[in-house]
């Protein structure tokens, strides 16, 4: 079991190409923790913005009558990957992990796999 800070550190250190990571509460849009990022990449702005992405998808699924759960959302930019992984169970409801990857350095399949493990270990 890892706490928020350990999980964020692990994501940034062990996932190849990771440049920023945040744990976000999508009921409020506020980040519980952020790590990495830069002056030009404000992770709290990303947290608020991607909250709208998650909410929008959940609403769409509700309208479509889909019963499944979102596991993750992938956004592909020309030079970056953004991975959103919703946290399931153990009081982690309403939270997601947000990971920014440099597309040149990252291995997407590996990053997804590692992020899943980090999410499973995370205790909020």
């Amino acid at each position: 079991m890892a706490n928020t800070e350990t999980a964020l550190k692990e994501a940034l250190a062990s996932i190849e190409g990771a440049t920023g990571v945040a744990l976000v509460d999508y009921t409020s849009g506020m980040a519980l923790g952020t790590m990495g990022g830069s002056k030009s990449f404000d992770l709290t702005v990303a947290a608020a913005g991607n909250t709208d992405v998650v909410r929008s998808k959940l609403r769409t699924m509700e309208h479509l009558g889909l019963k499944g759960q979102i596991e993750d959302i992938l956004i592909t930019l020309s030079d970056q990957y953004h991975l959103i992984r919703l946290i399931s169970g153990r009081g982690g409801n309403g939270l997601f992990l947000y990971l920014v990857l440099d597309a040149k350095r990252a291995n997407l399949a590996m990053a997804r796999h590692q992020l899943k493990k980090i999410e499973e270990d995370l205790e909020v």
Partner: peptide, 8 residues
């Protein structure tokens, strides 16, 4: 409301 966005 998205409080994060509200603050921003």
């Amino acid at each position: 409301v998205n409080v994060g966005r509200l603050h921003l």
